[in-house]
Design a protein around this nucleic acid. Structure first.
Length: 517
RNA sequence: GUCUCCUUCGUCUAGGGGUCUAGGACACCGCCCUCUCACGGCGGCAACACGGGUUCAAAUCCCGUAGGAGACGCCA
């Protein structure tokens, strides 16, 4: 296979929002082109003028760009090529390969009904096949292909293998409608030929169409391209993936908070694999992608796996990038201070989020004080809890305003405390634990602006728990309720570090003094 | 109905005659970690649709059966 000449295309129709299955088709085409060093072209099949919208067309471009799928030449707009399509249809008539059919819609409907009633499959009977094409008849007509009736056509499909269909299965299908517009069958063939497409990679719902199209290529005496029909994506129930499965459009997934790298990785693994690899970068995908390794069996869409992948890619992303990405998802617009807080709390936030929507929700604790408290919070509003919170507030205030207490030694720390930390926390911790010989300088850095570090806060609160003889969880959950209005959040110590003493104490006071419970 | 395609754990898949008492991932269950929830670590459950061949040997090759899907438009 000579690599330099390969040309593929993605040819969506803007009659609806871009389906996630179409996105996969685009991805496979793109990957194939990039792998082979060929060209990836775009064609908008907007010949159905009633259902096509320019908004849908825009969305196609937008989603492809979002996913990093770039195309090589000016996109072809199919509706601009109608004259060319007609021309080909007419030339086929002149060449005796096609003919004018004057059967009315009513006549055909009647024949179809009759066939159905008799339990037979309907095929156009070719009534006008031998009508003299030079005769001028003043009736509306369509142009039909004079299909070959004998023999069979075998397509050496790059994914499906050899597929043979008997020509007797085909009828003389329509190339040009009575209103003079081309049908899909005609326009794809003409456009693919004119665009120099060498490999047609598309959903396998087109497999049977292929045999009709091959006949058009042959009638035109054009070279037949290679085909690769990839299996469709199904919903969890095994039926074609659609709206009722939750989300079928690529735009939906973007709005649900999935990252583009998640979508392309997930879609790639649906029906294609490279050994045991699950997390695959675009670069590796381009390096590894071949049509031979595309599976033939249909795959079901698994939301859980998508989520898991998304969680992975969220953890991978840089905090700044995540912040920018999540801003449109935030419930309200945020100022620079809030952004800074979110950024500082991002490590704790992102390891808990499966989607950007989750992330944005979780980030609200750094945007504003709780506007309401979850029902379960009442459990931590007992007098004994409130009493503990008063002490907590004092400790936080003290930590925030004065130099923190001496650093704990390794043995003083509860076991496990020095282990298992990640991200920023770990770095901070390492700083503070090396601080035994250089406490002054560390305070100067870590306590900047009178702000205590997560570690210092953690130590102080843990000490309080020991002192009062209560379990840490009792204090921590009460703090969480007061700080977040809910019982699930990142580390409360980290939250306090990010919010600062003033805001933290304010939230705790609000909780203590609120009328309820 | 006709034609075409598909069939390994619940799901995505590895596997191209012996290395398969079938591997990985997600999900699920358990344990560890733990300030909640997650993350992470460790472990567990779980599949070659069925029936015939071919072969010394079949998840792997062939043929049936069953099940699933797609296509049968003057839609794309």
């Amino acid at each position: 296979m000579r690599k330099m000449s390969i040309r593929v295309r993605f040819a969506p129709s803007p009659t609806g929002v871009l389906h996630i299955g179409s996105v996969r088709t685009a991805l496979f085409n793109w990957l194939f082109a990039r792998h082979c060093g060929g060209k990836f072209l775009l064609r908008i099949e907007d010949t159905d003028k009633v259902r096509s919208t320019s908004q849908n067309t825009q969305l196609i471009f937008e989603i492809l760009e979002w996913l990093g799928i770039d195309w090589d030449e000016e996109p072809v707009i199919q509706s601009a090529r109608i004259e060319r399509h007609k021309e080909v249809a007419e030339s086929l008539v002149s060449a005796g390969m096609a003919y004018r059919c004057y059967c009315s819609a009513d006549e055909l409907a009647a024949k179809k009904e009759k066939a159905l009633a008799a339990g037979e499959s309907y095929k156009y009977d070719g009534a006008c096949r031998d009508v003299d094409s030079t005769a001028v008849v003043d009736r509306p007509f369509v142009i039909r292909l004079k299909t070959r009736r004998e023999g069979a056509v075998t397509v050496a499909d790059l994914v499906q293998g050899n597929v043979t269909v008997d020509n007797s299965q085909l009828d003389d299908f329509v190339l040009l409608r009575s209103d003079g517009t081309p049908t899909y069958m005609l326009s794809v063939v003409v456009d693919d030929h004119d665009m120099g497409v060498t490999h047609i990679i598309r959903g396998d719902d087109h497999l049977t169409n292929t045999f009709k199209q091959v006949q058009i290529y042959e009638a035109c005496k054009w070279p037949v391209p290679r085909f690769a029909h990839i299996p469709l994506i199904y919903g969890p129930d095994g039926a074609k993936l659609s709206k009722r499965h939750g989300a079928a459009s690529a735009v939906d997934y973007r709005e649900l908070g999935y990252l583009p790298e998640t979508i392309s990785n997930y879609l790639l693994r649906l029906g294609w694999s490279h050994g045991d690899d699950e997390i695959i970068s675009i670069a590796d995908a381009i390096k590894w992608f071949t049509l031979e390794s595309v599976g033939k069996s249909p795959a079901r869409f698994d939301m859980k796996k998508l989520q898991n992948l998304n969680a992975h890619y969220i953890k991978q992303r840089e905090n700044e990038s995540l912040l920018n990405y999540m801003i449109p998802f935030l419930e309200r617009s945020v100022n620079t201070d809030a952004k800074q807080r979110i950024l500082r709390g991002m490590d704790g936030l992102k390891e808990r989020a499966k989607t950007i929507v989750d992330l944005a929700k979780g980030a609200m604790i750094y945007v504003e004080a709780p506007t309401q408290y979850d029902e379960e919070c009442a459990k931590y509003a007992t007098e004994s809890h409130l009493e503990l919170l008063r002490s907590v507030a004092e400790i936080i205030t003290a930590l925030g305003d004065t130099p923190p207490p001496p650093q704990p030694t390794e043995s003083e720390l509860m076991e496990g405390d020095t282990e298992r930390r990640s991200g920023v926390y770990k770095e901070v911790h390492e700083h503070s634990s090396t601080g035994s010989t250089q406490q002054e300088t560390d305070y100067g850095e870590l306590g900047r602006g009178g702000r205590a570090t997560e570690d210092q806060i953690s130590y102080a609160i843990k000490s309080l728990a020991v002192e009062r003889g209560v379990k840490l969880v009792e204090i921590a959950q009460a703090m969480r309720a007061a700080l977040c209005g809910k019982l699930v959040s990142p580390s409360v110590f980290q939250i306090i570090e990010v919010l600062g003493a003033h805001e933290s104490v304010a939230r705790i006071s609000t909780f203590i003094n609120r009328p309820l419970s």
